[in-house]
């Protein structure tokens, strides 16, 4: 068995007195697409943010590609990594947000080349060439010089995906990428994500798009109250949920 891309063991996360994650055990193999569904407040987004250390784990272990996230272990104790070391590891993990979070003061092209130039020290002409390639891949080859405010939601999200891909990540995290979009625009973003999955990208996707989970997912995880209630093959879980809680949730979204 090869080393999993993401390995979560008994991950806990609290915000003050509120426990958001109470013991998550999950693993994602390289090339797999894991889809996480669940009601609001179930901890899906927090778990995703823990994977690239935007949130610190309070207990348990979380590693990406065999390395602990945000910590280093020495003599059985964990030490938090320095800012620059955390940044270096994050550079290998792409993330796409519910509200796109494009940089409004930069053009589409600048949004995409910013990280490769500043973090990976790629030359600007080379970075721009790659950026234009990615833009045509997501169907926006002609919008390189537009500002984010001139784009539709679906276009913004496709730019955000291109921006994450420009860092050539080995893992992509999607945090409800289509939840802020008009129903008509959801399809264009999902198409890009499906293509990405076919190309072999390892993906963790938090979403309410059950159809996407069924079609693309290798594993479906249903979370509620900070724990994994049920996990398994998407078609299996969707057709034949074992837990009452899963059944209740699915009856509302299907």
């Amino acid at each position: 068995m090869t080393q999993p891309m993401v390995l979560a063991e008994n991950v806990h996360k609290r915000f003050g007195a509120v426990t958001v994650l109470s013991g998550i055990d999950l693993e994602v193999q390289a090339g797999e697409v894991m889809v996480i569904i669940g009601p609001s407040g179930s901890g899906k987004t927090t778990f995703l943010r823990c994977i690239n250390h935007l949130e610190q784990v309070n207990a348990g272990r979380l590693s990406v590609d065999g390395e602990l996230v945000g910590y280093r272990e020495s003599n059985g104790k964990l030490y938090e990594l320095r800012d620059s070391e955390v940044a270096r590891k994050r550079a290998e993990i792409g993330m796409v947000f519910q509200h796109f979070n494009l940089f409004p003061h930069m053009t589409v092209l600048q949004n995409i080349v910013e990280a490769p130039v500043k973090v990976k020290k790629v030359g600007r002409p080379e970075a721009e060439r790659i950026a234009r390639e990615l833009l045509s891949k997501v169907g926006l080859g002609d919008r390189a010089d537009a500002y984010p405010s001139q784009l539709s939601g679906g276009q913004k999200q496709r730019v955000a995906i291109a921006r994450a891909l420009a860092m050539e990540p080995k893992l992509m995290l999607f945090d409800e990428p289509t939840s802020a979009l008009d129903p008509e625009l959801v399809g264009e973003v999902l198409d890009v994500m499906k293509q990405l999955a076919r190309d072999g990208m390892t993906m963790v996707v938090v979403t309410h798009e059950i159809g996407f989970a069924r079609e693309v997912g290798d594993k479906l995880v249903f979370m509620d109250g900070g724990v994994v209630v049920e996990a398994g093959d998407p078609r299996e879980v969707l057709a034949n949920p074992q837990h009452e809680r899963t059944k209740a949730f699915l009856s509302k979204v299907l």
């Binding site: 943010r49 690239n52 935007l54 940044a87 270096r88 994050r90 550079a91 290998e92 993990i93 792409g94 993330m95 947000f97 509200h99 979070n101 494009l102 940089f103 910013e114 990280a115 500043k118 973090v119 990976k120 955000a160 921006r163 994450a164 860092m167």
Partner: peptide
């Protein structure tokens, strides 16, 4: 969220 986006890119 702007900070989160920038940090997620490795800045």
């Amino acid at each position: 969220s702007q900070r989160a986006a920038a940090r997620s890119l490795g800045l």
